[in-house]
């Protein structure tokens, strides 16, 4: 009896491990290639010895891609657009979930339906609009576009979670004399920390790693951003794989750290809030 019980768990552990290794294989290849020279990447894809180890790629990539300027711009874009996204969508989610009115249900369906629009088709019209407003070549163009395109999904998330909170909270707040906005701000929003964390991670990563918006709306000399700077390693005649991987590793480290930090919050908290559509 005992032996039989041990076999299945062991198989499952083995399966998990095997698939995890398969998932991590490209990442592993990619990270160790960042530390290798060009020939070594080509001839020994998976092998890594102490002799091969070199920081050259990182040093070259760092100077070539204007790392600090790129990080600064990308961080500004990500931070401000996340602020907008979280702030606006949590308000919208609260209203749609807690205030009963036909107009809000219609708005909700409208917002959620907007999730299906592909960005690639709308790039040129947006470029024209931004040019007319005068924000072309400006960080604010990216910020506004990123926040707007993330709003539907974020509102979708928030509405679901706001619905799941009990109504007594609201009534208690009303008794205390809170207006609608205060109820939202003081009572509901703090309880949604895990959803906020999920939203930040999901949308934040999208904005941080975005290439299309930054390359279409910004002047890469004036306002470099991370992913646009990484693209420069793929020239027409020579692709500097090692350097580009080193560059991408340097881009990914900040969000990886943020993810680890926020991971605790949203998994534990999402459980408490319960995932309901």
């Amino acid at each position: 009896m005992k032996r039989k019980k041990k076999v299945v768990p062991l198989l499952m552990e083995g399966l998990i491990l095997f698939i995890t290794i398969a998932i991590l294989l490209p990442v592993f290849y990619f990270v160790i290639s960042a530390f290798k020279s060009r020939e070594d990447i080509l001839f020994y894809p998976l092998k890594m010895t102490v002799e091969m180890f070199t920081f050259d790629n990182f040093i070259i990539a760092f100077s070539k891609m204007k790392y600090f300027a790129s990080v600064k711009n990308t961080a500004i874009i990500t931070g401000v657009s996340l602020a907008f996204t979280v702030g606006l969508s949590s308000m919208a989610g609260f209203v749609i979930a807690r205030v009963q009115a036909r107009r809000f249900q219609i708005s909700y369906s409208f917002l959620v339906a907007l999730m299906v629009i592909p960005f690639i088709g709308c790039v040129i019209p947006l470029v024209i609009i931004m040019n007319r407003i005068g924000l072309y070549n400006h960080l604010w163009a990216c910020i506004l576009i990123q926040s707007s395109w993330n709003l539907p999904f974020a509102t979708f998330l928030y509405t679901g979670f706001m619905k799941s909170l009990p109504g007594e909270l609201e009534e208690a707040a009303m008794i205390d004399g809170c207006s609608l906005f205060k109820t939202y701000l003081r009572v509901f929003l703090p309880l949604q920390a895990p959803v906020t964390a999920t939203c930040c991670i999901r949308c934040g990563i999208g904005v941080w790693n975005d290439y299309l918006v930054s390359s279409s709306f910004l002047n890469s000399a004036k306002s470099p951003t991370l992913m646009v700077s990484v693209k420069k390693f793929f020239g027409q005649y020579v692709n500097e794989y090692g350097q580009s991987f080193a560059a991408v590793v340097m881009c990914s480290i900040p969000i990886f750290l943020v993810f680890i930090f926020l991971q605790k919050y949203f998994i534990k908290g999402m459980a408490a809030g319960a995932v309901k559509g």
Partner: peptide
């Protein structure tokens, strides 16, 4: 947590404003 978020928001806004005024100077020329 809420205070930290509010602080982060303010910093981002200030940073954006600072970044933007610098951009607009260059923007005029271009």
């Amino acid at each position: 947590m809420k205070k930290a978020l509010a602080l982060l928001l303010t910093i981002c806004m200030l940073g954006a404003l600072g970044g933007c005024s610098k951009q607009s100077d260059n923007g005029n020329e271009k």
